[in-house]
Design a protein around this nucleic acid. Sequence first.
DNA 1: GCGAGTTTGTTCTCGCGGTCACAAACTCCG
DNA 2: CGGAGTTTGTGACCGCGAGAACAAACTCGC
Lengths: 241, 241
Amino acid sequence: MTARSTNTGEGSGAQDPHRDIPEATVARLPVYLRALTSLAERNIASCSSEELATAAGVNSAKLRKDLSYLGSYGTRGVGYDVDYLSYQIAREIGVTHDWPVIIVGIGNLGQALANFSGFSSRGFRTVALLDAAAPMQGQTVAGLEVRPFADLAEIVAAEQVSIGVISVPATAAQDVADAMVAAGISSILNFAPAVLNVPPGVDVRKVDLSIELQILAYHESRKAAEAVETVDNGSEEGITA
Amino acid sequence: MTARSTNTGEGSGAQDPHRDIPEATVARLPVYLRALTSLAERNIASCSSEELATAAGVNSAKLRKDLSYLGSYGTRGVGYDVDYLSYQIAREIGVTHDWPVIIVGIGNLGQALANFSGFSSRGFRTVALLDAAAPMQGQTVAGLEVRPFADLAEIVAAEQVSIGVISVPATAAQDVADAMVAAGISSILNFAPAVLNVPPGVDVRKVDLSIELQILAYHESRKAAEAVETVDNGSEEGITA
DNA sequence: GCGAGTTTGTTCTCGCGGTCACAAACTCCG
DNA sequence: CGGAGTTTGTGACCGCGAGAACAAACTCGC
């Protein structure tokens, strides 16, 4: 491989050929991991890049290139060992051990997130639910007691939490983010429809339901417009005789 | 509110200079729209690209370039009229009228989505909730009765639904998607952690909570690794005095 | 009316990411 | 043991998108 490498000595894992994995690849690694898990559950021990790519819904060339950033974990002429590759991806992502997560804002969405099995199943452990509203506090959601928002710093310190989920109304989101950062959290998953301002070094990922719908609406509008145009053209001169 | 629809006289539009707006821009237009709405609520009638860009969390050059794809709706030396630009963006996205939406899968997440005000507030109207499980059917969620999944085609036809939301377990997602496509839905927002196979012409957007968390975990891992490296290097030779 | 100041719209450049195509490397079979 | 077949890993190419810089156009003050 072209990596002039000077391969870090390090010896054991040979795990950082470059150390700089493209962001687009990082976003796909979890998809590959899920596809591999699905294969493993069906007792499939090895697979080709073509099979895995199909399961993950991507191009096989793209998959191979993505995996090549991690190292050469396949065997030419054979394919990939499912368990081995699973472990390598999990290790690269950092989900070989569990990450403690807190959720702030236990409204409808927060409760759904707390109950969401996908969180706990794959490398994440919800350690606390917080809400500023008194009526929620003390109630039990998904087996966890809802605690006051004021306990944030204490919990983060005690549980070594570095990932926080924000599911509060937009107006409160920035305050929650500030408090999280102050408490030492450095990665935030934000469900509130608001732009968060955070200091450098803190990662924010945004999940915005209404934006997703609006993007769909845009394409839907275009489809409708195109349909009209096609009909117009069709009535005039037909389509590609 | 901002959508005083009968404006613009239809004729003077000049609204489709290219008709091909880059995907990245489309994804940001809803953010601009939200920022504009926020400005309007504070009775701000006009703003510069710099102000709007700050509110939307982007670069001002990028914002101007994005807006230029829609047309020249600003005034040099002045800025943008908030209401006018809002309407132009809304029209381009296609949210000047309401889009009927159905939600399939009324579990924790589905209920949260049904209750989510962001859906109804900005151009979307939830017309039906569907679930295949008998216990849910007939119950009322967010003011709507949960109906059997089998009613899908009937409802889609009756209400002219073109956007569907999937919030069922991963194992059922493909079946639901197939049924939606068969019923005539051409845009799907998928919350299930599964790769959906749909025919061309159907748009699918995916919101995957555990993938988002895993991406955060990756960066968190790297931050931790870098911190260790920095300490190591620091003890040896310090950092670029 | 005109110059100074301001802000938009656009052009240019650069880097990331996606795709193709092919060499390298492994297995299998005769 | 060697050749055929298969599959990975990667080099090359291309197009999109981000960012900077600048010209065009508008307002304001005199």
